[in-house]
C-alpha cells in the first residue's frame, strides 16, 4: 500500500499489453461481482421508496437521505430542521471506533514489538496464539464475553471473592463493555500488520539514534514510529473501519445509549420493522465517510513520499 513505487513493466510493449488484457479478466470479474455490483445495488436502493413489510417500491426519491438529515415534524409538514438523532449515532460510532482503534494500538504495538523481537522460531507460535480466538465464531465469542462480565458472572464473582469489590460492577450495557468487545474482536487486525512492519525494522537504526544522543523515548518517537508507520496506519484502518460498522458488540454488550451505526443499519433490514432504503442510505453515508478518511490518508502519504 503506502510508499511503494511500482516500476513500469519493462519489455516489448505491444506483446505485453496484448497478453495482460485477457489475463486481467478474472480480476475484473471478481471486482465487478463482489465490489462494484453490490455497491451499485446499495446506491440504487438508497434512492427507492420503502414498502411496509420490508422491501422496496421502484419509485425514485431522496426520502431516505431526507429522513437521515432533516426533521419535518411528525406529519412531515413542518419547516425542516436538522435531525440530530442519526448524526449523533454516527458521531458516537466514529468516536467509539476511534477510541477502540487507539486502545488496540496502545495494546497491539507492544504486543507486536514483543513478538517481532522473539527468536525467529518462537515467533510463529506467538502469532498463532494471537489468531487462536479467530477459530471461534465472532457471535459466540461476543456472547461469551457478555457472560464473563455480567453481574453474577465469573469476573464479578472472583473480584468479590477476592474482596476487591463489595457489589458487582455493572459492566454490561455500558460504553466500557462495548469498547471491551470491539477491542477483543479487532485486536489481531492491529497486531498482525504492525508485527509485519516491526519485523522488517532494522534495529541498527535504534542503535544509530542512541549513538547520536537520542534517549529511548526520543528514538521511539523520531525513528521507530515513523519507520513502522505504514504498518501502524494499516492496522488502524483495519481496526477502525470494521469497528465503525460493528453491530454485534454494541448490540450484545451495549445498551440503548450505545446504539451505533452498525446496529442502526442492521435494524433496517430486519423483518417487517425495517426500512431498506433508509438502511441503504445510512450504509452509503458510512461508506462515503470511510472513503473520505482513506483518501485524506492516501493524499498525506503521497505527499510524504514525493518529498
Amino acid at each position: 500500500m503506502a510508499g511503494g513505487m511500482t516500476p513500469a513493466p519493462q519489455g516489448n510493449g505491444t506483446g505485453y499489453r496484448a497478453i495482460v488484457g485477457p489475463l486481467l479478466i478474472p480480476t475484473w470479474v471478481m471486482i465487478g461481482i463482489f465490489l462494484v455490483l453490490p455497491v451499485l445495488l446499495m446506491a440504487v436502493y438508497s434512492f427507492l421508496t420503502k414498502e411496509f413489510r420490508g422491501g422496496v417500491v421502484w419509485d425514485f426519491t431522496l426520502a431516505a437521505y431526507d429522513q437521515f438529515f432533516l426533521n419535518r415534524g411528525l406529519f412531515g409538514d413542518e419547516p425542516p430542521v436538522i435531525e440530530w438523532t442519526y448524526i449523533t449515532i454516527f458521531w458516537r460510532s466514529i468516536w467509539q471506533a476511534a477510541l477502540a482503534t487507539l486502545i488496540c494500538l496502545i495494546v497491539g504495538f507492544p504486543t507486536a514489538w514483543f513478538i517481532a523481537t522473539r527468536p525467529a522460531r518462537t515467533r510463529a507460535v506467538w502469532l498463532f496464539l494471537v489468531t487462536v480466538p479467530y477459530w471461534v465464531n465472532l457471535l459466540i465469542r461476543t456472547v461469551s464475553l457478555k457472560f464473563l462480565i455480567r453481574e453474577n458472572g465469573p469476573l464479578n464473582e472472583s473480584l468479590m471473592a477476592l474482596g476487591l469489590i463489595t457489589d458487582p460492577l455493572p459492566l454490561v450495557n455500558t460504553n466500557l463493555a462495548v469498547q471491551l468487545g470491539l477491542f477483543y474482536s479487532y485486536l489481531p487486525f492491529m497486531v498482525l500488520p504492525v508485527y509485519a512492519a516491526v519485523e522488517r525494522y532494522n534495529f541498527a537504526l535504534s542503535e544509530a539514534a542512541a549513538d547520536l544522543y537520542a534517549s529511548r523515548w526520543v528514538t521511539l518517537r523520531e525513528i521507530v514510529l515513523p519507520v513502522v508507520k505504514p504498518g501502524i496506519i494499516a492496522g488502524c484502518i483495519l481496526v477502525f473501519v470494521p469497528s465503525l460498522g460493528a453491530f454485534l458488540a454494541p448490540d450484545l454488550l451495549g445498551g440503548a445509549k450505545t446504539f451505533m451505526i452498525g446496529s442502526l443499519i442492521d435494524e433496517q433490514f430486519r423483518g417487517s420493522q425495517g426500512n431498506w432504503p433508509f438502511g441503504a442510505a445510512a450504509a452509503m453515508i458510512l461508506m462515503t465517510l470511510v472513503l473520505i478518511v482513506l483518501t485524506v490518508y492516501a493524499r498525506a502519504q503521497t505527499k510524504g513520499d514525493a518529498r
Partner: peptide, 20 residues
Amino acid sequence: LDPNHRPVNTVFQQYALFPH
C-alpha cells in the same frame, strides 16, 4: 553509561541511515 551519554559516534557497517 548508556550509548546516548557517550561522546563517541559510530559509522555503522550497513550505514543505518534513517530512511524517512
